[in-house]
Each structure stands twice: as structure tokens, then as C-alpha cells.
């Protein structure tokens, strides 16, 4: 039966919703801070996206992300690893490495030529190299998040923060400030560090698709990734919504529709 489907990605920082129409086209999207009540975030997002699209009901809802178990009205749930892989494969149906940089974790997902997940890696416990790291260092530098990319574009020198620990990275930044490092170079250093932490997680192939909130907010990380790895780096439309989009594709499968 043709119906709309909903994908919900309840991330550590932000929650995302993607609504697909019965033909599999994006009929709506919504984004909000996850906050402390996953269930409320999920419900509010659903209501927001459905009312904006003028849709009364959906045929299937799939939840993903850290809060995937806290969506009582979801019909199914999948991990964000499966959903990002599915979303990326929709746009790039080929063998690839999906690099997702989220608020609290980084993932490398190796997707086979047929779209199945061959293996995946997640960062260890520390937030170094994640969105939380970018926020923390920007805060330390007292530079608004929306300005750091523009500053980074003007860098004259490549620096990388070497610490595995976000807190120690902040002290490393203080040392660089004391030594008179230019803010532009420090901002560039933040992004260099994000990519450095990802690259050391595991081997990457020659075709990389980047997703998550960090590449959505700071497209410069894709350029840095390409420069660092020599790989072709692609970013799908709305990379922050890729997990939710993948979840919606799973929902279509659950209904028996063509992906």
C-alpha cells in the first residue's frame, strides 16, 4: 500500500526527521536539538514534519541514532551505521567508505558494491575529532561557530592539534595562542584535527562519502579530507539528514516498496 514513511535520527546533539512520499521523494525534513527527552524530541519532530507536509499519517516509522530505543511509536529501529550506509548508497550506488562525523562519534562504514555493510569502525570513547570537539575548541577561542570556517579559509599555515583528548586539545590551543598563533591557523587546525582523528581510525578507500552535522556546517572538512587522503570525496545533499533519510528508506523496505 502506498504511504508516506518517516525516518527519525535521534543523535547525541541534534535530532533529524525525513518524510518520504509514497514515491520515495523527500516530502519534508525537520531538525531540532535532542535535549534530554528523546521521546519528546521524536514526537515533536514527527508532528512538525507531518504538519508542514499536510500529511495525517505514515505507513511506517523507523528510528535510528542514540535515542532509537526511546521512540515508542517507531515500527522498527536500526543502528545509525546501517542507516548511513543505506542513505549514502542511495546517492552513490557503488563501493565506498562513508565517513560520518557526528556530535559525539565518528564512524567509518565500508559499504560493498551491492550496498551491504562490509565492516565499520567507531571512534573510541573520547570526543576528540567529533562535533563536540569543534564546539569546545571554538568556545575556547571565543569565536562563534559560524565564523570558524571563514577564518580557516584564510589560514597561512597548517597546524594539527595532536592530543587524543578534547580537554587536552584545549590546553594545546592555549599554548598556541600564547605563542602568538594566528586565529585563522588555529581554526584551520581544528578541522585538520577532525580529519586526522578520522584517518587514524582505519584504512580508507579511494571513494569517500561524508555525512553528519560537521560536514553540513563546515564543508571545508570535505576538502581537507580529499587533500589528506587523495580520495574522491563526495557529500550527499543534506548530509546532516543522511541517517534519517536512510531510516526512511528502511521504512519503505519494511512496507515492501522499492527503495
Amino acid at each position: 500500500m502506498a504511504a508516506h514513511v518517516l525516518g527519525l535520527d535521534l543523535g547525541s546533539s541534534w535530532s533529524k526527521a525525513v518524510l518520504l512520499d509514497p514515491d520515495g521523494r523527500v516530502a519534508g525534513r525537520a531538525l531540532r536539538r535532542t535535549g534530554i527527552r528523546f521521546e519528546d524530541a521524536a514526537r515533536d519532530l514527527r508532528d512538525e514534519v507531518l504538519s508542514a507536509a499536510g500529511v495525517d499519517r505514515v505507513g511506517c516509522t523507523v528510528a535510528t541514532g542514540y535515542g532509537r530505543r526511546n521512540v515508542p511509536f517507531a515500527d522498527a529501529r536500526r543502528t545509525e551505521i546501517s542507516c548511513h550506509a543505506k542513505g549514502a548508497y542511495h546517492f552513490f550506488p557503488r563501493e565506498m567508505d562513508v565517513v560520518d562525523i557526528g556530535g559525539q562519534d565518528n564512524k567509518i562504514i565500508h559499504v560493498r558494491r551491492d550496498g551491504t555493510v562490509a565492516n565499520f569502525l567507531m571512534n573510541r570513547k573520547c570526543a576528540a575529532g567529533t562535533g563536540a570537539f569543534v564546539e569546545e575548541i571554538a568556545h575556547r577561542l571565543d569565536i562563534p561557530l559560524e565564523r570558524i570556517e571563514a577564518l580557516a579559509e584564510g589560514a597561512t599555515r597548517e597546524i594539527t592539534l595532536s592530543s587524543f583528548c578534547t580537554v587536552f586539545s584545549a590546553t594545546e590551543v592555549i599554548k598556541l595562542i600564547r605563542e602568538g598563533e594566528e586565529p585563522e591557523n588555529l581554526c584551520r587546525g581544528i578541522f585538520n584535527s577532525v580529519i586526522a582523528r578520522v584517518v587514524e581510525m582505519g584504512p580508507l578507500g579511494e571513494f569517500i562519502v561524508m555525512s553528519g552535522g560537521v560536514v553540513a556546517a563546515f564543508p571545508i572538512v570535505a576538502k581537507i579530507m580529499a587533500g589528506r587522503t587523495g580520495a574522491a570525496v563526495e557529500v550527499p545533499p543534506d548530509p546532516q539528514f543522511l541517517g534519517a533519510f536512510g531510516a526512511a528508506l528502511v521504512a519503505r523496505e519494511e512496507l515492501g516498496a522499492d527503495p
Binding site: T79, E80, I81, V117, N119, F120, M122
Partner: peptide, 9 residues
């Protein structure tokens, strides 16, 4: 999440 994704895989 790692274990669940592994089983999905």
C-alpha cells in the same frame, strides 16, 4: 550501538 550494528551487518 557497535554490537547491534555488527549483528545487523
Amino acid at each position: 550501538t557497535n554490537i547491534e550494528a555488527f549483528v545487523e551487518q
